[in-house]
Write a protein that binds this DNA or RNA. Sequence first.
DNA 1: TCAGTAAATAGCTTGACAGTTATATAGCCA
DNA 2: TGGCTATATAACTGTCAAGCTATTTACTGA
Lengths: 112, 112
Amino acid sequence: MPLTAIEALAEPHRRQILDLLNARERSVGELVGELPVSQPAVSKHLRVLRDAGLVQARTDAQRRIYTVRAEPLLELDRWLAPYRRHWARRLDALERRLDQIDEHSDDAKETA
Amino acid sequence: MPLTAIEALAEPHRRQILDLLNARERSVGELVGELPVSQPAVSKHLRVLRDAGLVQARTDAQRRIYTVRAEPLLELDRWLAPYRRHWARRLDALERRLDQIDEHSDDAKETA
DNA sequence: TCAGTAAATAGCTTGACAGTTATATAGCCA
DNA sequence: TGGCTATATAACTGTCAAGCTATTTACTGA
């Protein structure tokens, strides 16, 4: 059974792989050069990411070039949505405090 | 070592717990009533979520009331940010197509 | 065709984790 | 105090995932 995006990306090396591919497409060998694990380990991670729909491969001679497929991240983004109000509130509070500081610095200017 | 938010939330029951708590705060017993696992399993999940900073507990007599702490989700949200352009593009494309459809329906109106 | 390169798979080991039952801890109330 | 309720922890088990080395598969070019 393929993993969901969040399950696949719980593994740090897989997040790293996706980040690298999001910068630009890469061959397996290039990815191996960037990660502290063996080639078979990278291939296995790529398999998991592929099964989760997060990457796709294209063949170029004997290389396989991998690119990002971001669609499965939409579900994660949507799951996250109901939590955004929490930090939205926090940001509101922060902004209020910054406004206060602004007011005080105006006071300071006036008294200067 | 405490897990990161994404690692803690790879587990479906923990996502479910967080969703339940995001709707409203609950006691352990109430959570047990909503999940298909034993009370100790729920307590263990709550421990993991607590260690990850995703929930906090308050004592009410012999109950413990758990609430969401969303801050750790910010990191996940930020990680996700560079991928949003992918589906933003898709939405752009969709919008263009909808615009086209609109134009066509205008054509239809005009020729009607 | 054969040697060489690139990537995937096989087979194995190890450690972590989610679940269980049993037990401990803690607060309430008669 | 004693018994009840609520939750946490202990101890154990089975499964699974991530890593490795060795091997296979696939393609290239001399």
